[in-house]
């Protein structure tokens, strides 16, 4: 795959997506906005990939959002031409591209503005000690709405509002992100990717089909009121009931051996 703004590699069952414009703090330009959906499509289609890791190149930033230089010059063209201006043009994350394989985001520095999409749409988020989280939208006259709405489902409301309204001068540090559950671990800078890979390896021991169905039911539950979400969850359990991994998992446990999982179907992985 020809990529100019991303590094994309696979290690065993883990796909590692590195935002790779370190000279621009890995800000999203038009090319990156079109390359990310291609990479997520590959994650979705490759049966050998169980889990994805998103991180940024360099020691300073995961991603500082849409490249403001592009916006100011009027050359910002996010997404494919046919979709431009629609919500479908924002296809940066696994969820936005309809991929339900588990995603770990390793925040390696600053993340702000549109970069918060990667945090809001992740399953697991860890960060390095130098990570900071803030939202620059209102500083430059834009609405800080889309990413924070996702964050309202992850962290206390007050923290979301402070992030969105206070702007770039008010930065959440890694310690506070850990306190309020925005991230679950803080590592030294050089230990971040190794730790993300360790977590990925643990995830890969689990049934890929069960992971996808579980992740999907939990995310979809956020669209529903509690009783409806519980009903929806039960129907997911019923649909999964005949899956061969259920027998295999029980047998492997009884026989004290590693299970041999079925691959997850493309249909189950995609929305």
């Amino acid at each position: 795959m020809e990529l100019s703004t991303l590094q994309y590699e696979k290690r065993d069952g883990a796909a590692i997506i590195t935002l790779n414009r370190p000279e621009r703090h890995n800000a999203i330009n038009g090319a990156m906005s079109r390359e990310l959906p291609r990479v997520w499509d590959d994650v979705k289609r490759d049966p050998a990939v169980v889990v994805a890791i998103v991180t940024g190149a360099g020691p300073r930033a995961l991603c500082t959002g849409m490249d403001v230089a592009d916006i100011a010059s009027g050359t910002a063209q996010v997404g494919e031409a046919a979709e431009r201006g629609s919500m479908q043009s924002i296809r940066l994350t696994a969820l936005q591209t309809g991929c339900f394989k588990p995603v770990i985001t390793a925040v390696n520095g600053m993340v702000c503005g549109g970069g918060l999409h990667f945090v809001a749409d992740s399953d697991i988020v860890i960060c390095s000690e130098n990570a900071t989280f803030f939202d620059t939208h209102v500083n430059v006259g834009l609405l800080g709405v889309y990413e924070p709405i996702g964050l309202t489902r992850r962290i206390p409301f007050e923290a979301v509002m402070r992030l969105s309204l206070a702007g770039s001068g008010d930065r959440m540090d890694a310690k506070r992100a850990l306190d309020i559950g925005l991230v679950s671990e803080v590592t030294p800078q050089d230990g971040l990717l190794p730790r993300a890979l360790e977590l990925a390896r643990e995830i890969m021991r689990n049934s890929p089909a069960a992971l996808v169905a579980t992740k999907r039911a939990i995310w979809e539950s956020l669209n529903l009121s509690l009783d409806a979400a519980l009903e929806h969850g039960w129907s997911a359990i019923e649909q999964h009931a005949g899956h061969p991994d259920i027998q295999e998992g029980a047998r492997a446990f009884a026989e004290k051996r590693a299970p041999s999982w079925q691959g997850v179907s493309l249909e189950d992985t995609s929305r």
């Binding site: 939208h137 209102v138 006259g141 800080g144 924070p148």
Partner: peptide, 9 residues
């Protein structure tokens, strides 16, 4: 931006 951001969230 602050007004509409706050309203939308």
């Amino acid at each position: 931006a602050v007004h509409y951001t706050r309203q939308a969230i």
